[in-house]
Computed example of a mutant assay.
Amino acid sequence: MSTRIDVNDLDIFYGAFHAVQGVNMVIEPKSVTAFIGPSGCGKSTFLRTLNRMHEVIPGGRVQGEVLIDGKNLYGPGVDPVNVRREVGMVFQRPNPFPTMSIKENVLAGVKLNSKRISSAAADDLVERSLRGANLWTEVKDRLDKPGSGLSGGQQQRLCIARAIAVQPEVILMDEPCSALDPISTLAIEDLINELKSDYTVVIVTHNMQQAARVSDRTGFFNLEATGKPGRLVEMDETSKIFNNPAQQATEDYISGRFG
């Protein structure tokens, strides 16, 4: 699968409130795309529309199209549960299931999807997923211990292993390092670079240095004033966004003149 995402004229609402307006973009397959911008400009809200998590919030709705390989996620008859299998999400704070072991955490999504799996296949999937999240060597001798007993950085990598165990095409990450120390942050950034060989990765980050380090393309979101909808100001190759942006607002934000 190429797993390209095309967003066409997307407007996002919470009830009557217009949260994000008129987003058009292409997210390239097997790449890392980062969204930056000040707090409250709609980055995370937009990210959640890419796997239909936005509509879980009461009053959450969208107008427009989100196409994955040409198929509209919001088309008639599309099951949002199937969308979330194809497009995984890793949240801001590590959230392993506290009553589950490391192994059970990895398998949680698979079992939630009612997939029958043999013990041998489960063991193989756990190892492959933990290796994919660069966590296997650290936890292989304590798979039956609680996932909540791991360090913060290990917990976040466990959540990434849980996400990739269901074999998605796309992985979304909402500020995946904001609760982590610098060493754990580096481990996650290295992992993001590795994941793009198999997945289309989209991250939201407030850390502009992180966006510059890990992403191939960057989108800058902004809003005119409090209460106004957020907008995608521009999106381009990351090197261009940080070194020669097309819009003055982007340059002002990156240089620290506002935001």
Rank of each mutant, 00 (worst) to 15 (best):
M1H: 12
M1Q: 07
S2A: 13
R4A: 14
R4S: 12
I5A: 02
D9N: 04
D9T: 00
D11R: 05
D11S: 09
I12Q: 00
G15Q: 06
A16K: 14
A19R: 08
A19D: 01
Q21H: 15
Q21L: 14
V23Q: 06
V23L: 09
V23Y: 10
I27P: 01
E28N: 12
P29Q: 13
I36Y: 09
G37Y: 09
G37N: 07
P38T: 05
G40S: 07
G40N: 13
T45W: 07
L47H: 03
T49Y: 11
L50E: 12
L50R: 10
R52I: 08
R52P: 03
H54M: 12
E55F: 15
E55M: 13
G60W: 15
G60L: 14
R61N: 13
E65G: 13
D69S: 12
D69G: 14
K71S: 14
K71F: 14
G75A: 15
P76R: 12
V78H: 13
D79H: 15
D79N: 15
V81N: 13
R85V: 12
V87W: 01
M89P: 00
V90Q: 04
V90P: 04
F91A: 02
Q92L: 05
P94E: 00
M100Y: 01
N105Q: 06
V106H: 01
L107P: 00
S114Y: 14
S114W: 15
K115N: 11
K115T: 13
S119Y: 07
A121I: 07
A121M: 05
D123W: 01
L125I: 06
L125C: 03
G132F: 11
N134F: 07
L135Q: 07
T137F: 12
E138Q: 03
K140P: 14
K140D: 09
L143P: 10
P146F: 06
G147Y: 00
G147S: 04
G149M: 12
L150F: 12
L150K: 08
G153S: 08
Q156C: 03
Q156N: 06
L158P: 03
C159Q: 08
Q167A: 11
Q167V: 07
E169Q: 14
E169F: 10
V170W: 13
V170I: 11
I171A: 09
I171F: 09
L172G: 08
D174T: 04
D174A: 07
E175R: 06
E175I: 05
C177P: 06
A179L: 02
I183S: 11
T185G: 02
T185C: 02
L186H: 11
A187E: 09
E189D: 05
D190Y: 04
L191F: 02
E194Q: 10
E194I: 05
S197P: 06
S197N: 09
D198I: 04
Y199E: 04
T200Y: 00
T200H: 00
V202I: 10
N207W: 01
M208T: 03
Q209R: 03
A212R: 07
V214I: 02
S215G: 01
G219I: 00
T226N: 06
G230S: 11
R231H: 11
E237W: 05
I241H: 00
N243S: 07
Q247I: 12
Q248E: 13
A249F: 10
T250S: 05
D252N: 09
D252F: 10
Y253N: 04
I254Q: 04
F258S: 09
G259V: 08
